[in-house]
Design a protein around this nucleic acid. Sequence first.
DNA 1: CGGCATCCAAATAGATACTG
DNA 2: CAGTATCTATTTGGATGCCG
Lengths: 127, 127
Amino acid sequence: MEHTEGQPANKAFTEDCTKVLNAVSDALYAIGGKWKLMIIIAMARGNNRFTDLQKQVTGISARVLSSELKELEMNGFIVRTVTAGYPVTIEYQLHPYSHTLEKVVGAMTEWGMQHREKIRSERSSNL
Amino acid sequence: MEHTEGQPANKAFTEDCTKVLNAVSDALYAIGGKWKLMIIIAMARGNNRFTDLQKQVTGISARVLSSELKELEMNGFIVRTVTAGYPVTIEYQLHPYSHTLEKVVGAMTEWGMQHREKIRSERSSNL
DNA sequence: CGGCATCCAAATAGATACTG
DNA sequence: CAGTATCTATTTGGATGCCG
């Protein structure tokens, strides 16, 4: 966040800005929205069944979970496996590519925790 | 992503998972959505005026930009300043708190760039 | 268990015009 | 310049019931 105050951004700066914005925009397209990251996190923690995921990811409905899982599968983040048996067992596994998200998840987790703490302390101090 | 395969997650693991999910959920509540991070990035790069932001953040409408700026202000990420003059000048500045997002932005930028590259190379290889 | 179909309500967003 | 107002179109999501 290094920029000479006041001036309108210069060309090079604007181009760099555009690159960053494009990258973040791409990221948001793939993993944006309320649920995708949460589902990936829950799966990384051993929730591999539809019902388990629905329990762990608070507030998600079956319909939405179903459609999110499909998108995640289409985009190569997870793999859906059907195992024969009685009844058949359906499991979702993280594709190795999902692990590339670790830094993003880590950064958001850390920030989210300190943000929650900040909000909490603000509320308790002025009420 | 260390977890004994197959078993349903145990209690401690589930609790940890819930903590992480809560944190990420809080983060998404504050900075989720298509635009908030993009606006913060554009501002960090020297776009401090309404019109500049609208130009830099491709695809955002005046109405949406206006409401996003209000939310960002309410949540303490930015400050709106009115300077007397003819006409008055309105500027948006990042509040120092926004800088705590640097790691998140950095991680998303990096991931978004490599993701874009992956998509691009996939497309060119099977068409 | 792991969903899909349907219906309906609500949130979101685009277009356009207008204002101090 | 920095927005607001209005209206409409589209997306999204919850609830419910059903199915193999």
